[in-house]
Amino acid sequence: MTTAANNARIDWETFQQTIPEMATAMAAITRAMRQSGMERDLIELLKIRVSQINGCAYCVQYHLNDARKFGLAAAKLDLLAAWREAGIFSARECAALEWAERVTMLATHPVGDHAYAALAMHFNEREIIFLTTAIGQINFWNRVAAPFRFAPPIPGSSV
């Protein structure tokens, strides 16, 4: 059986060589995010969850690798897809995850005033700006990596 990872439509290296400015611009956003003071584990949780929703194997694996490198709790990674039922995520994490899902699925889960108010109970305006930017950034990456079928970066793999 052939897998999507074996059938990349365009590989990462070709993409990067074709439009290096995009990778540079995205790296600048990532740098700003890291300098923002936002909790890196929270940002990684959001990136993984959004990538799960969008079915982007490359981004799910990429951000799982990053999350593991800096010690994000394995239980949170294992239960992220069922975060509402897991009972191990803080109120702040739950608010951010709910926001991430709504921002990702705008067409089916509109971002109403109640959703913003729920988020604002746990984050200030500056933090909301950074959270929303991180969510937008990973949604963009998902919309590039999934259709082109970038091979997931499996640790220890030659793929």
Rank of each mutant, 00 (worst) to 15 (best):
A25Y: 15
R40W: 11
T30K: 13
A67H: 04
D11A: 04
T18H: 09
A23E: 12
T104G: 03
A74Q: 13
A86C: 11
K69C: 06
E85V: 06
M38F: 04
P20M: 06
F70Y: 06
R68D: 04
N54A: 01
K47E: 01
N7T: 12
L80E: 10
K47Y: 03
W83F: 13
A4V: 09
K76R: 12
D66Y: 03
Y62F: 15
E101W: 06
K69I: 08
L79W: 12
S51L: 05
L45K: 00
T18Y: 07
A82Q: 11
E44Y: 09
E85Y: 08
E44G: 00
A23H: 10
D41A: 05
R92D: 07
H63D: 05
E98H: 13
A86Y: 06
F15S: 09
S36T: 01
R49S: 02
A57S: 12
G55D: 05
T30E: 15
R68A: 08
Q35N: 15
W99Q: 01
K69F: 06
R68Q: 13
D78V: 09
E44K: 01
I29Y: 06
A23Y: 09
V60M: 05
E21Q: 13
C94S: 15
M33A: 10
K69S: 14
C56R: 00
L42P: 02
C56G: 02
G71Y: 03
I43V: 15
R34Y: 05
S36N: 01
Q35C: 10
D66T: 07
R40P: 07
N54R: 03
M105G: 04
L45S: 01
R49M: 02
A8L: 10
A91R: 12
R31I: 11
